[in-house]
Design a protein around this nucleic acid. Sequence first.
DNA 1: CGGAATCCTATATGATACTG
DNA 2: CAGTATCATATAGGATTCCG
Lengths: 124, 124
Amino acid sequence: MTHHSQAEPVFVADCRARLAFDLLANTWNAVVLWTLRHGPRRPVELRERIGGIRPKVLTETLRRLEYNGLVSRTSYAEAPPRVEYALTPLGRTLLGPIEAFGEWAAEHGDEVLDAQDRAEAAAR
Amino acid sequence: MTHHSQAEPVFVADCRARLAFDLLANTWNAVVLWTLRHGPRRPVELRERIGGIRPKVLTETLRRLEYNGLVSRTSYAEAPPRVEYALTPLGRTLLGPIEAFGEWAAEHGDEVLDAQDRAEAAAR
DNA sequence: CGGAATCCTATATGATACTG
DNA sequence: CAGTATCATATAGGATTCCG
């Protein structure tokens, strides 16, 4: 064992936190999880509710979430085909932290927009 | 006014939540904010503590955070040059939600890793 | 409908070198 | 040390088309 007078990088020490940040480090993951909060949804429903998301991108997002155990996929042998996505128990535990951000945004979103306006004005 | 029997897309309705998600929708924003939680830090300190971040990327990240009013930059007229970055009051309000994710990761991080392993195994 | 295939673009990130 | 410039690459995301 070597002696460390310096603190370990948080990159190493908080690698689990990095894991959580990475789960939300893209445009759509949190949005899709949040849209599933009330129960299972079909892809077409998700697209309607979210708006502005391409079918391909939605599929990729759902695959990512499935890969990380946050969402489950169920397909029914019907015609026309029907598929539903739902939060797993693990995915459901993430709703609390996500909601914390939603509340933060409701409370402080305007301040961010103001800061952006000031930055734009200062740049000119 | 048109009549809407369908719910408005959350993309539109929860646009402030999207704003908050976008603040964390990249690799480094949350990590840098979290590393500033105990007080002002110089770029070299941030690099040491975070680990694995390129100077250029750190600068870009700090510029983004400054643009959104979450971080402030102070430069001192010294030789060698010294610069410090600190959370603004607004940035400080974001520590709570970020910490919620850290706690989630500490509690459920292993489950995500397990899910990833299962997905990898199933793919083979 | 669900989703795969294809092509394209923008951006984030990474690596190196250089300036004040 | 702080920061920029320049290069390269990986990936997300967007748009279109087609299939079971």
